[in-house]
Amino acid sequence: MAYSDKVIDHYNNPRNVGQLDKSSETVGTGLVGAPECGDVMRLQIRVNPETQVIEEAKFKTFGCGSAIASSSLATEWVKGKTVEEALQIKNTDIVKELSLPPVKIHCSVLAEDAIRAAIGDWKKKNGVAETEAATQAVAAQ
């Protein structure tokens, strides 16, 4: 199966690979995985406590090229958004941007789940009321 140019670009030059301090109050960590293909994805955000803007995002993904590209793109997209704005990112946006074939759609779902899980973790740490979307993400864990 051929990967789209954008997937290849993210795969070869992944943005924001790395790790943030998990124990920091301003950092939210989302760890998600798909048992059927063995993908694991960790996405972390650093949120400005005043503005609730995501100032930094890092990821580390073990999986196929599409999973890596989806999480790489997710970190790019959440940066500069408020947590509420970031929750609006849908897996279908990722599919569109990366031209993922149907068989790789679950990679984008995983990336969306990772964003929600990271935000859910940050909210929990900071006692921010859960929105419905974030509650779902926590339940999914």
Partner: peptide, 18 residues
């Protein structure tokens, strides 16, 4: 299978424990 999950548009609802 991975294919079926893809057709459903999402992975199976069974998530691996944290």
């Amino acid at each position: 299978s991975e294919e079926q999950a893809a057709q459903d548009g999402k992975p199976k609802d069974s998530r691996a424990p944290v």
